[in-house]
């Protein structure tokens, strides 16, 4: 059976008002359950692409289908719903709300999405599920849950962010340079743990990094610089 499509982009362009095109992608398809590595240097338009997929930005033209919803046509609240219910996002750093505890940070998506809250409660409740995810990401210590996030190391913070992205079984996890602040050892361990969790839940992963050396740990790798015609044009200028 042909795997279903999770993300499909066709002839997508994006530009801030009054500025030249930042992003121009003729075709990009990601299958469900696939773990895609996108290599992108800064300025390649990777954050813009992820913003378009997550539905916080709207393209100037083209089609962006995410989990069956056309993000280009959908209204703001439909995109907000899709993001809240079915997407998990991890940033480069500063992922966590500084004034909330580890547990409160991990549980945050359940507050905004009734769907995720329901799925979590079917799995035994927020605390149990957060504890399980954190443990599987290598954060075993029970006292950690109530600790302030500012007391954590960067590596621990990124794993908390991963647990938050994964809670409530999202269908798609987007990671924007989540390892750039980590040393080589913790980077590889983080990717292995994230991949295992994504696989276990059957989610799709889009992982963006400027470090092409990571590509081997994913199902497929693409270079955003070749994919994005706007970036190519800029380079030839």
């Amino acid at each position: 059976m042909e795997p279903q499509t999770c993300i499909e982009l066709r002839d997508v362009t994006f530009a801030w008002p009054g500025e030249p095109a930042l992003l121009d992608i003729s075709r990009l398809t990601v299958s469900q359950g696939e773990k895609l590595f996108l290599k992108g240097a800064s300025g390649s338009g990777k954050s813009t692409l992820l913003g378009l997929i997550a539905g916080v930005l709207s393209p100037r033209s083209g089609l962006i289908s995410v989990l069956g919803q056309d993000q280009a046509q959908a209204g703001g609240s439909q995109r907000d719903h899709l993001r809240a219910n079915r997407l998990g996002v991890i940033f480069q750093m500063f992922n966590l709300v500084p004034y909330l505890s580890v547990l409160q940070n991990v549980a945050l998506p359940c507050r905004f999405s009734p769907d995720r809250a329901r799925r979590v409660s079917e799995n035994g409740g927020v605390t149990a599920e957060a504890r399980r995810l954190l443990a599987q990401l290598g954060l075993h210590e029970p006292s950690l849950l109530s600790r302030s996030v500012s007391a954590l190391s960067v590596g621990q913070q990124q794993r908390v962010a991963a647990a938050r992205a994964l809670i409530g079984q999202p269908d798609l996890v987007i990671a924007d340079e989540p390892t750039s602040a980590l040393d080589a050892d913790s980077r590889d361990r983080f990717i292995a743990l994230l991949n295992a969790q994504v696989e276990a839940s059957g989610a799709t992963l889009v992982f963006v990094s400027h470090d092409g050396g990571l590509a081997g740990q994913f199902d497929r790798a693409l270079d955003l610089t070749t994919l994005n015609r706007a970036a190519r044009r800029q380079r030839t200028d």
């Binding site: 907000d80 940033f91 945050l108």
Partner: peptide, 16 residues
């Protein structure tokens, strides 16, 4: 600013 964008990314709607 960062706090708000984290909340947005984790699913907060404009009304939130």
């Amino acid at each position: 600013r960062r706090e708000m964008s984290i909340l947005r990314a984790t699913g907060a709607r404009p009304s939130h």
